[in-house]
């Protein structure tokens, strides 16, 4: 004869155990269905934020200067630049939140019905996950290709902060830093406009080879000479260096936003 307390206790224990097992099963399944990015254990990548590079012999030689990687010559003016847009990554499926199925009368369900519910839900999960897995496999393949060419960053390059999630991110940031240097050198607004607090935003679309598809003033400074100097800077840099494949799609569709706001000097 079991007293009500012991009965309640064992029932609660049963539910608790079931829930634990359920969570464990779900997480195990997740690990199989959505593998997280593999850990890369290799020698540390130095990213010097400030300061000059070391004279350490262990570091690999410096990357060749950008001129060495000559981009393919731009097509003759008669033709438009190739619209070689990389297919945009498939949008992630909308998060599906299962509505609780209309609850039957609050009777006890048998274990079998429990299992049926679980497997139905998990089947749904699996179907949706397949699509997502495809997309991730593509992305992972691209990342693997990019990683093969990744170079560790040596000093004298400003590394932008933020969440460094993997080496694709590093390439992304390195490319933008290179562009920033080029623009900084090429942009020469006139001195008589130095103290006016002018700022301009320019949107540039670049194709996968680095040729400029389109450039436009997004937010004018109010001074046509100042705006023109920004556009001239882009003309003098073009063609841009070839963007990394992870960035090419973004640069040709959404473009690159240049926010130029020189602060006044003393």
């Amino acid at each position: 004869m079991r007293d009500p307390f012991a009965q309640g206790l064992s029932r609660s224990l049963g539910i608790s155990l079931g829930a634990h097992l359920l969570v464990g099963a779900v997480l195990t399944l997740k690990a199989f269905l959505f593998p997280s990015e593999p850990l890369r254990i290799e020698s540390a990548i130095r990213v010097d934020i400030v300061g000059l590079p070391d004279k350490s012999p262990q570091l690999p030689p410096a990357p060749p200067p950008p001129q060495a990687e000559a981009p393919p010559p731009p097509p003759p003016p008669a033709q438009l630049p190739p619209r070689d847009l990389a297919p945009p990554p498939p949008p992630p499926p909308a998060v599906v939140v299962l509505k609780p199925t209309p609850g039957p009368t609050p009777k006890e369900r048998t274990a079998k019905e429990l299992r049926q519910d679980q497997s139905a839900a998990l089947k749904k999960l699996e179907a949706i996950a397949k699509l997502e897995r495809q997309a991730r496999a593509d992305a992972a393949a691209k990342a693997a290709a990019a990683m093969a060419q990744a170079r560790p960053v040596q000093g004298n390059q400003v590394s932008r902060g933020g969440s460094l999630s993997g080496l694709t991110r590093l390439d992304h940031d390195t490319y933008l830093s290179t562009l920033e240097q080029k623009i900084r050198t090429a942009w020469r607004p006139p001195k008589y406009l130095a103290k006016n607090g002018l700022k301009v935003k320019v949107l540039v679309h670049i194709d996968a080879q680095g040729a400029v598809i389109k450039k436009a003033i997004l937010q004018s400074s109010g001074n046509s000479v100042f705006d023109e100097s920004a556009l001239q800077a882009i003309d003098s840099i073009a063609p841009f260096p070839q963007p990394p494949s992870s960035l090419a799609g973004l640069l040709s569709t959404s473009g690159l936003l240049l926010d130029l706001e020189p602060s006044t000097t003393r």
Partner: peptide, 13 residues
């Protein structure tokens, strides 16, 4: 990845 954005706060006048 975030949007491609470059901000420049000094210029060689």
């Amino acid at each position: 990845g975030s949007g491609a954005y470059i901000r420049i706060t000094d210029a060689k006048f």
